[in-house]
Nucleic acid binder design. Sequence first.
DNA 1: CTTGATCCTCACGCTGGCGTGAGGTTTTAG
DNA 2: CTAAAACCTCACGCCAGCGTGAGGATCAAG
Lengths: 125, 125
Amino acid sequence: MRIGKLAERAGVSVRALRYYEEQRLVIADRSPSGHRQYPESAVERVKFIQLLYSAGLSSKAILHVLPFLDTLTATPQMTQRLKDQRDRIRTQIDDLTRAHDRLNDLISLASESEISPATCSASRG
Amino acid sequence: MRIGKLAERAGVSVRALRYYEEQRLVIADRSPSGHRQYPESAVERVKFIQLLYSAGLSSKAILHVLPFLDTLTATPQMTQRLKDQRDRIRTQIDDLTRAHDRLNDLISLASESEISPATCSASRG
DNA sequence: CTTGATCCTCACGCTGGCGTGAGGTTTTAG
DNA sequence: CTAAAACCTCACGCCAGCGTGAGGATCAAG
């Protein structure tokens, strides 16, 4: 499959795919004319990469995690890196949850302050 | 209180505080000589700003949310913005959770692949 | 009065994940 | 055969949240 199709199917831009290759996250065969050729499996791979990016991993961190996908065997070091990232994400989730709750508190206050005194008793029963 | 003390107490850099002022997130009085003067309340305000930054809000988004802290009254538009941000955070939490779970799956696989065949039956009962 | 800590205002640098041409080749549809 | 679409390689641009001097004023203590 060529780069345009992969981009479409994985939901990323062509530019992004070239960038991933630059970061060595994805390896592509080349046709005699130099066009990139991807296997079917690249779709899932790119989607996984996107998942990790959206979770805040850097290209470098992803690069350290990906080899496991290929070989399905991990060195203790790789396992540790996976755990480190997982823990970092958990921490981030906790931070976000705190912010989420704080915002929710504010929303409650805001909703009340919005309501005119006359309708207040009606809406709060 | 002056900027150094506020930075220390709020757990941010002096540079960051100047940046927040540039973004109009924090307003500071000035001494005759031009030094910034902050009230006690600035500590909590800055901590709250940090919370929102860590939740991925931009300066602009924070700027739209903060007036509520000062007035304790919200326009419907402000309430809506609060809700939008809360929803965005929730979405982000979901993304992170998915990544977290995927990584956990990988960690399970990795832990297995790490174990030598001889010890495998022992560790898996 | 002096010294060192703290403060001030520019203003450039950095990082990451791409966007976006420029200028040229290749593939594909008709 | 031709035109459009898709591809290629540079390579600069962007944004955000600061870090990090440069060069100078101000403050607190002895």
